[in-house]
Design a protein around this nucleic acid. Structure first.
Lengths: 225, 225
DNA sequence: CTCCCTATGTAGCCATTGACAACATCGAGT
DNA sequence: ACTCGATGTTGTCAATGGCTACATAGGGAG
C-alpha cells in the first residue's frame, strides 16, 4: 500500500500528507463521487487533525483543482501514448487519441469525474487552466491533422473540434458516469466504445464491418449496473 | 411575475411554496450552478422559515430531483416539437431532435444543469427515473427510424444511440457549461451548434456546403465569455 | 356552531462541514 | 545552541441539512 517514492520519513508528523490526501481523495471520488470528498473526511481517513489538509490546500476547491490537474495530465499522457502507438496516419492517430481518452475515463473514473465535475469547472486555478489548455490544444492539433488527411474536409475546423470533444466526453461519460449505467447496461463497454468512436472518427475500415473486432480483450467490467 | 394557475390564496402562509421554491431554485442554478442551491437559502429568498421547504421536499435531493424531472419534461417537449416541425424525413427529424435539445440547453442552462449534474444523476427517484426513461426512449426511437431511413445503416443500433446521446449531450454541455466558455469563446453558438449537429447527423445537404446556412437567426448570445 | 384533523409553516436543536486563528513541534540551517 | 519555517493540532464560528415539537389556518363532521 505504501509504494511511496522517496523514502518517507514516517517518524515525523505524517510524511507526505499532500500526496496521501490526493490519493485518498481519488479513492473517495471513485467510491462516492466528487460530492463525497470532504476535507475533514480525508483528514479522518488519514488520521490527521481536521485542519491539517489546510497546510497543503487552501480550501476544498484547491484540492479538487489539484486532482483535476492530475487528471488532465494523466489523460493527456494516455492520449499521447495512444496516438503514438497508432502509427502515422493522422486519422488513425486522432481516433486513437479519442479512444485513449474514453479508456482513461473507464479505467480511472475518479480522475475523469474530477475533470468534468461542474464544481471543478468553475474554479479559477491558473495551473489547472494551463493544463486544460494543453489538453485542448492536443485535441485541436489532432483534429486539424486529421482534417488535412481527409477527415471531414468540408467542415469548419472549430466545429470539428467541438464535435470531437462533445463526442469523446459524451462517450466517456456514458461509461464513467453512474448516470448512464442503466442506459448502456448489458453492453460490452469496450466494444460499444469502439463502435461509438468509429462513428466519430470513421475508421479506415480495412478489416471487417464491425463485430469481428477483437481489439477488445482488456476488460469488460462496468457494463452491468 | 405571479402568473400562477389556481388563484393563489396569498392570505395564507405563503400560497404555493412548492412552485416558488422550484422557480427560485432554477434561478439560483442559472446564476451559480447546482452547488449554489441550498434549502435554507431558498427559504430566505422566499421569506419563509428555514424548515418550510421540508414540507414540500423531503431533502435537498428531492428538490433537485423535481427540478431535473421538470427539465426532462421541458427538454422532451422541445425535442418533440422540433421533430414535428422537421417534417417526415426520419433523418431530418432526428437531427431536429438533437438540435432542439442543444437549443434547450442553451436557452435554459438551469434545467440542463439540473439534468446533468452528477449529484442529481445518482439520485434514486422513481418519478425522475420514469421521465428519464421516456427521454431516452424518444432518442432511441428517433435513432432507429433514422437508421432505417439510411443513417449509418451498418452501425450497431446501440452504438448509434450512445453516439447520439454522447454527441448531443457533449454539444449541449459545450454551450451550456461554464467549462467550455473559453474553448468555444468567440464563436457564434448557433452556427457552431448547427455545424456540430451536421457532423452528428449528416444533413441531407441539399442546400449549400456550409456557410450559406441561414437557419440561425434566433440569438447569438452565450458566445463571448 | 364547535371540534377535530390535515396541510402547511415555525422555532429550536444537533451533527457535519469549511474556514479561520492561535498555538505546538519537528528539523534544518546559522 | 538558537531561530525559524514547515507542518500539525486545538479551538472556534457560521452555514447547512435534517430532525422534532409546536403553531395555525381552514375544511369537514358531528
Amino acid at each position: 500500500m505504501y509504494a511511496s517514492t522517496t523514502l518517507v520519513l514516517m517518524s515525523y508528523h505524517h510524511g507526505n500528507l499532500r500526496e496521501a490526501l490526493l490519493r485518498r481523495a481519488a479513492q473517495v471520488i471513485a467510491e462516492g463521487g466528487v460530492e463525497a470528498v470532504s476535507l475533514r473526511g480525508l483528514a479522518r481517513d488519514l488520521d490527521v487533525s481536521h485542519a491539517a489538509p489546510r497546510r497543503h490546500f487552501a480550501d476544498r476547491g484547491a484540492l479538487l483543482a489539484a486532482l483535476a490537474q492530475e487528471g488532465f495530465r494523466r489523460s493527456l499522457e494516455a492520449m499521447e501514448n495512444g496516438a503514438r502507438e497508432a502509427g502515422d496516419d493522422p486519422i488513425a492517430r486522432y481516433r486513437a487519441l479519442g479512444r485513449s481518452y474514453v479508456r482513461f475515463a473507464c479505467e480511472d473514473p475518479a480522475y475523469f469525474r474530477a475533470i468534468n465535475h461542474p464544481e471543478v469547472s468553475n474554479l479559477a486555478d491558473d495551473a489547472l487552466g494551463e493544463v486544460k489548455q494543453r489538453w485542448f490544444a492536443a485535441l485541436r492539433e489532432g483534429a486539424e491533422a486529421a482534417q488535412q488527411a481527409g477527415w471531414h474536409p468540408e467542415a469548419d475546423p472549430r466545429a470539428l473540434v467541438a464535435f470531437s470533444i462533445a463526442g469523446a466526453n459524451g462517450a466517456a461519460a456514458l461509461f464513467a458516469d453512474e448516470r448512464w449505467h442503466d442506459v448502456v447496461g448489458g453492453c460490452d463497454a469496450e466494444t460499444l466504445a469502439d463502435d461509438v468512436l468509429d462513428l466519430i472518427v470513421h475508421k479506415s475500415r480495412t478489416s471487417a464491418p464491425r463485430s469481428t473486432k477483437k481489439t477488445t480483450s482488456r476488460r469488460k467490467g462496468r457494463s452491468a449496473s
